[in-house]
Amino acid sequence: MDLDLPLIWAGIIALAVLLYVMLDGFDLGIGILFPFARSPRDRDTMMNTIAPYWDGNETWLVLGGGGLFAAFPLAYAIIMPALYIPILLMMMALILRGVAFEFRARGRTRGKAFWTGAFAGGSTVAALSQGLVLGGFIQGVTLNGEAFGGGPFDWLTPYTLLVAVGLTAGYALLGSTWLIWRTEDDLHGDARRWAWRAVLASAALLAVVSFATLFVHPQVALRWGFEDGAFDLARLALLSPIPLLGLAGLGFVVWGLAKGGHVAPFLGSLTVFVSGYLGLAVGFFPNIVPYDLTFRQAASAENALGLMLVGVAILLPVILAYTVWVYWVFRGKVGADAGYH
């Protein structure tokens, strides 16, 4: 049997990153919304809604990084140095917000206040730096042969800042709609108000980012039907399901918010993320280091990809199964006392 291993692995990495963005997205969103909570008790509840999951969610980031190293070592070796500063910034932020789950529960007055701040600040900075990483990736990386050949601040442009703000708004949308689903009473009401603001901000920023992305590289514009001032409607029509999916997702969020649904806004937000993710991926595919290195050029040895595929075929279904089980175990509305502390 002849499997297209590089293509399969590109799909696996893409899936890992998408799952990461959606899953850690809502729990980073909780941290982004932390400053807006009306009481420490509400913050306890917010944290309790994600406490059993956050570690598993973040593991998809490790799979994204580790998987890229294993399956596309050349891409890993180029992208990481290129985005050195935002990636390291993300790491520091994730450290501070990650330990805050336990530390905040152990701290006394000042300690608790500090780790509340660390959780909020860390989550926000992690979201922003992930946006910078994403933006820096989409706008392309300068190569010198088969190594990174640009400068340390190549990633810092108006476009990447825009993406950073957009992704952060998107995470706030995921976080607020998650809270609508998983909380009650005052906090639930607050989450609805946050979700209204987040969905408006996300929709506006998604539109601006989508538009701006057309200008980062001719290849992206070409994909969407624009070439040298000419416009090819057939190309755009072919890809139109992607933006339409995003619009449907936004519509579902708004509809869910308007009619007081509990789950619909969250599902709608996830749909928006899938659409945005596909929309960006279409622009640079088949490059894995935009816009000079394809996933085939960066792929690891066939035997390495084959060996790992056996592992994935056995383990990934198991991982997905127990992840779903854990979400099932901790289903339902969550209160401030749900923790074990």
Partner: peptide
């Protein structure tokens, strides 16, 4: 990373797949 990835990359991948997810999920 670029030099050693094709040889020891899978070992890291197996660590994530076989261990990290298991630990993180059941820790909850």
């Amino acid at each position: 990373s670029a030099v050693a990835g094709p040889v020891i990359g899978p070992l890291f991948a197996f660590e994530v797949l076989a261990a990290f997810f298991l630990e993180a999920s059941f820790l909850g």
